[in-house]
Computed example of a mutant assay.
Amino acid sequence: MALHAIAEEPNPYAAAQAELHYFNEAIADPKRATLPRVLVEIREDKKTERFWLNHARLDGKEYVGRLEAIPREVSSLQFGQEVRVQGKDVLDWTYQDRESRVIYGHYNVCSEFKAMSKKEAKEQMTYWGVACKPKQ
């Protein structure tokens, strides 16, 4: 079965942005979260490229993460470079709970689960270890 992108969630990035406080709370406690990442879109002249920034952390009001991909379009960035972005520039986020090993965030992927039957979505979420929105 092909995944149908964004079946019910009109903008998964808006949902991720609205719930960014969950990410902030999790990464504030290193004993709670591991593998924190933020998805950003970098613009350079007329070129844009999306990247996951790994090992993301808050530094004041900015998110700082390491680019662990080789840019194809944005020539001002390099593999391994630390990149700083504002919170408003975070498209998506993810982290893994250290205790349960469950992955939270990934709002774009989670929106695709909504296009599946409930049974299939549950199977996929269990298989990938994804819970999307953290428990409150």
Results as ranks from 00 to 15, higher is better:
residue 103 I to F: 06
residue 52 W to G: 09
residue 134 P to K: 12
residue 55 H to Q: 01
residue 62 E to S: 10
residue 108 N to F: 05
residue 11 N to Q: 04
residue 20 L to H: 04
residue 100 S to D: 08
residue 97 D to R: 05
residue 72 R to M: 03
residue 120 E to L: 00
residue 50 R to F: 11
residue 123 E to Q: 10
residue 68 E to Y: 10
residue 25 E to K: 14
residue 88 K to W: 09
residue 82 E to F: 09
residue 12 P to W: 09
residue 49 E to I: 07
residue 27 I to L: 15
residue 93 W to T: 05
residue 128 W to E: 01
residue 19 E to C: 00
residue 77 L to A: 05
residue 23 F to P: 05
residue 8 E to M: 12
residue 22 Y to F: 15
residue 41 E to L: 02
residue 26 A to H: 02
residue 96 Q to D: 04
residue 91 L to K: 12
residue 112 E to M: 15
residue 10 P to N: 12
residue 21 H to R: 04
residue 102 V to F: 00
residue 61 K to Q: 13
residue 29 D to P: 08
residue 106 H to C: 12
residue 31 K to T: 09
residue 19 E to M: 13
residue 82 E to M: 05
residue 94 T to S: 09
residue 82 E to L: 10
residue 22 Y to G: 02
residue 109 V to G: 03
residue 105 G to L: 07
residue 60 G to P: 00
residue 136 Q to T: 09
residue 123 E to M: 11
residue 80 G to L: 08
residue 70 I to Q: 14
residue 54 N to A: 06
residue 11 N to C: 04
residue 126 T to R: 13
residue 89 D to F: 00
residue 102 V to R: 00
residue 46 K to A: 14
residue 24 N to Q: 11
residue 113 F to D: 03
residue 30 P to Q: 05
residue 75 S to A: 04
residue 7 A to M: 02
residue 88 K to T: 15
residue 35 L to H: 01
residue 4 H to N: 06
residue 123 E to Y: 04
residue 54 N to F: 08
residue 124 Q to W: 14
residue 82 E to W: 06
residue 8 E to H: 14
residue 103 I to S: 03
residue 95 Y to G: 02
residue 23 F to C: 11
residue 135 K to R: 13
residue 110 C to M: 09
residue 56 A to M: 02
residue 24 N to R: 13
residue 58 L to Q: 13
residue 59 D to P: 02
residue 115 A to T: 11
residue 22 Y to C: 04
residue 64 V to N: 04
residue 83 V to G: 03
residue 134 P to H: 13
residue 6 I to C: 03
residue 17 Q to E: 01
residue 127 Y to E: 07
residue 22 Y to R: 08
residue 113 F to C: 09
residue 19 E to Q: 10
residue 65 G to Y: 10
residue 134 P to T: 15
residue 22 Y to L: 12
residue 119 K to T: 06
residue 37 R to Q: 10
residue 58 L to H: 06
residue 17 Q to M: 00
residue 94 T to G: 06
residue 20 L to V: 04
residue 36 P to L: 07
residue 52 W to M: 02
residue 99 E to Y: 04
residue 86 Q to P: 01
residue 131 A to H: 01
residue 118 K to G: 05
residue 84 R to V: 07
residue 2 A to P: 08
residue 58 L to V: 01
residue 116 M to S: 01
residue 51 F to Y: 15
residue 66 R to C: 00
residue 123 E to L: 12
residue 2 A to F: 13
residue 122 K to Y: 03
residue 118 K to Y: 03
residue 126 T to N: 07
residue 20 L to Q: 00
